[in-house]
Design a protein around this nucleic acid. Structure first.
Lengths: 224, 224
DNA sequence: ACCTGAACACCGTTCAAGT
DNA sequence: ACCTGAACACCGTTCAAGT
């Protein structure tokens, strides 16, 4: 049914990036291939080279997309609230394309929205008394933590196709459950929780909160 | 000089994995190729298939290596100290092969040392009152945080060759320094800190401490 | 038991050529 | 301006064959 060789849609840089993001979400980043993307447009592989310089540039462009739809981060609340809001907005953006989320980290500083967010976050932290090195570490870790939370949402292999992921997780869960319970009581107990989070929003809230709590506690310790 | 086609060393599974780890560290994981590794042994690509099932299995075997040299984690101190020790020992192990560190995450549960560490960590957290879901989240994040700290040590592109990395970082730093200072004062200020941490041990200590502080503060908040 | 030769179906990319 | 055909140097992998 669904035409494998798609109806020849209009080819453009944006369309190519969109399609690539969709492929990455459905089948993992490993499925992104110049030839494969071209095929989806019913076009010859070399046609893509008119719109993107090469595959690396395509991957970069995919990473850039996340920062074009970055929600404005509210500026109210104390510094910790704002740090939380910053990470949370990154998480929201990255969750749009979990299969390509890791591409974002390399592109933050190349995107105006990314730079603005980084600048504000650094300002927040510096004003609170963190050293330059600490502020830089926290800002970079904030980005990486957001990526990590999204790509790792259910312990799924991030490069696998969406259809296979369910099966892989089940295998993983069963392996944990089959562990000798006298030696691994807690792993057996946590088998479900490690391979499937039934409260997705809670998972993200917990992850973001823990990151912010870490920053806050670190600051408090430094001041003491 | 240094023979590109190496003196034909004894081919074995262990030797193949060792070589591959060395290549990954020097040139990034992208340089790992069945044909390339074979070439280093002065052997035909198909020779490798006698020792490893395929490339995926080779990558898995590389990930397994980290858990074969995992320092025993001390059991003294309170739960937070032990959590810190667990993450720190992961960091030490991963730093041995930064170019392949990200392969470890998928292999924890397949290695006895990894399972033991996870089991103990879960036990630690459960005894303290964390829910199963929270303990599972923290344990998984602990692993991912260790990987993140190592692969992200200096903001370097993790897939680039070691020789190019220096240059890439300099380019990045210069780009930050060249930013309009009225709009991005903190990014300009932090340009050096974002692209080069001169105190490496401090970087890791800070990262691990912040993670543990986050867990501790989260627990305190839950109990309040 | 361990390795090779030849072959296959894939990649990314270039370049001249078409419209 | 935008796309194609043909070609090149790479991949991973299989399989029959060698020693």
């Amino acid at each position: 049914m669904g035409a494998k060789v798609a109806v020849r849609a209009d080819l453009s840089r944006d369309a190519i990036v969109d399609r690539s993001l969709a492929i990455a979400d459905a089948e993992g980043i490993g499925a992104i291939t110049i030839r494969r993307v071209a095929q989806e447009f019913g076009v010859t592989p070399m046609a893509l080279y008119w719109h993107v310089k090469n595959k690396d540039e395509l991957l970069d462009a995919m990473g850039d997309r996340f920062f074009e739809h970055l929600d404005p981060v509210p500026t109210d609340g104390d510094w910790a609230d704002q740090l939380r809001a910053a990470v949370a907005s990154l998480v929201v953006a990255l969750r749009r394309h979990p299969g390509a989320a890791h591409l974002a980290a390399a592109r933050v500083m190349h995107c105006a929205a990314g730079r603005d967010l980084a600048e504000r976050t650094l300002g927040l932290l510096r004003a609170e008394g963190f050293t330059v090195a600490q502020a830089a570490d926290i800002a970079r870790n904030a980005m990486q933590t957001a990526v990590m939370l999204v790509t790792n949402e259910a312990g799924a292999e991030p490069h696998a196709a969406a259809e296979l992921r369910q099966g892989l997780l089940e295998t993983k869960r069963n392996a944990l459950k089959a562990l000798p319970i006298d030696r691994y009581p807690h792993l057996v107990e946590a088998a479900d929780a490690m391979t499937d989070c039934e409260d997705v929003d809670g998972y993200y809230e917990f992850g973001v909160d823990m990151f912010v709590a870490g920053a806050r506690a670190t600051l408090a310790a430094a001041k003491a």
